[in-house]
């Protein structure tokens, strides 16, 4: 099952004027894989991710996501992926249920389907008591778990998570990762960025970007062997500090 590539990237490049933000990156991500996309602030992660989710045109190189080309079919990509970020995920001034209905509608689900999905989501996350509360009144950790479920409403092939656990308490952070494992196990591809290096260890494979280039890409175990260190934090420090 893990043989099909859901993301395929070759020599992908993005330039802003004479500044190269993403410099010929190449990698692929398989179905059901948890792929960690790491790098220091300003290394080019966000720029690369924007190209992959179809909202920024590459300068050169190739990329397909869920079998759609980023140059010619960005709209199809958007329909077939889920996305959540730390900064924006849900509308604070809508209730939990309204958010689900809104995003279900955006993704083109039928009314019956949305209802069905809403009930399933609310019962799975034990949200019965807060389903009609404004999202803004909920703790951050809850919001992030709901946001992740909402990003999966339309059963996307791949979901992009941009620092999904920043500032979240340690217990909820782990519950969040259990959700990630579960969905990956069921065949959803997970593309995730994080600044928590223990979370890097949870990924099947990890890439580390430095100044626009991918300087390392392998399983956490092999990266630690390659750099002869104990943990991913030290791999990161060795690479990014140069």
């Amino acid at each position: 099952m893990k043989e099909k590539n859901v993301i395929q990237v070759k020599d992908l490049t993005k330039k802003f004027g004479d500044f190269t933000a993403v410099n010929k990156i190449t990698f692929e991500v398989k179905q059901g894989e948890i792929f960690g996309f790491l790098g220091a602030n300003g290394a080019g992660k966000t720029t690369a991710m924007k190209m992959l989710i179809g909202i920024s045109k590459p300068t050169s190189g190739e990329a397909t996501v869920a079998n759609f080309d980023v140059y010619t079919h960005p709209e199809d990509i958007k329909k077939n992926i889920g996305y959540m970020s730390q900064k924006f995920a849900l509308y604070d001034d809508l209730t939990v249920r309204e958010n689900i209905t809104f995003f279900g509608g955006i993704y083109g689900l039928s009314k019956t389907k949305i209802k069905e999905k809403a009930e399933a989501l609310i019962s799975e996350l034990n949200l019965q008591e807060v389903a009609n509360e404004l999202v803004g009144s909920l703790p951050l950790g809850w919001k992030q778990k709901i946001a992740f479920s909402v990003a999966l409403l339309h059963d996307p092939k791949v979901v992009f998570l941009d620092e999904p656990t920043g500032g979240v308490d340690p217990i909820t952070r782990r519950q969040f990762w259990e959700m990630i494992y579960k969905n990956a196990h069921n065949g959803t591809t997970i593309f995730v960025t994080t600044h928590y290096m223990d979370e890097a260890e949870y990924c099947d494979r990890v890439s580390i970007m430095v100044n626009g280039k991918i300087e390392a890409l392998d399983t956490p175990k092999k990266l630690k062997e390659q750099f002869n260190v104990e943990n991913m934090n030290d791999v990161f420090l060795k690479l990014a500090r140069g």
């Binding site: 220091a40 602030n41 290394a43 920043g166 600044h195 934090n233 420090l237 990014a240």
Partner: peptide, 10 residues
């Protein structure tokens, strides 16, 4: 250091 990468945090 919230949202700051491990190198800058150190």
């Amino acid at each position: 250091t919230t949202g700051v990468d491990p190198v800058s945090r150190k």
